[in-house]
Structures are given as C-alpha cells and as structure tokens.
Amino acid sequence: MLEIILMIIIVVSAILALIQKDLLNAAILTGFSGGALAVLFQILLAPDVALTQAIVGAAIVPVFIALTVKKTQRSDD
C-alpha cells in the first residue's frame, strides 16, 4: 500500500513541478519526487541505492536547480 502512495507522490509532484510558474517551487517539487523515489528504493530492497538517491535526488539536484534559479530568474515566462 505504501508503495502505491509513494508512486502517486512521485508522479503527481513530477507533473506539478512542470506546471509551476515559480521555478523555485519547481525545484522543491523535484526534491519531493526524488525523496519519494528514495523511499521507494528502500521498499524495493535496495538500501544502498536509496541512500544515494536520498542525497542526490532529494538534496543535491534541487539545490543545484535552486542555485541556477537564483543566478538567473525566478519566474517562468
């Protein structure tokens, strides 16, 4: 059951990230999706992958995107 909820979180936050007008929100939603994916990896019996994905997907990728947004512009137009 938990994995179904996680999968819904992943897909929905991926879609939401792409329709945001504010790119900073998009970055945070990408982190949501990555973090949920990390938990899903844990459920799929891959703890090592889950650890890596938790760091990369939930922290590094959104921070990189947020830094780029800070250096460029925040709104999507």
Partner: peptide
C-alpha cells in the same frame, strides 16, 4: 523553459533508474 527542460531530463533518468531497480526486486 530551459530549466524545466532540464528538470524533465532528470525525470527521464529517474524513470530509467527505477525501472532497473524494479528488475532486481524480488
């Protein structure tokens, strides 16, 4: 928007990774 394009690319990568983890899962 180029940043959204790049976010999309990261989703493709995540999808491929999830698929491969799914192969190993028993």
């Amino acid at each position: 928007n180029i940043i959204k394009k790049i976010i999309g690319i990261s989703f493709i990568e995540e999808g491929a990774n999830l698929f491969i983890v799914g192969i190993g899962y028993k």
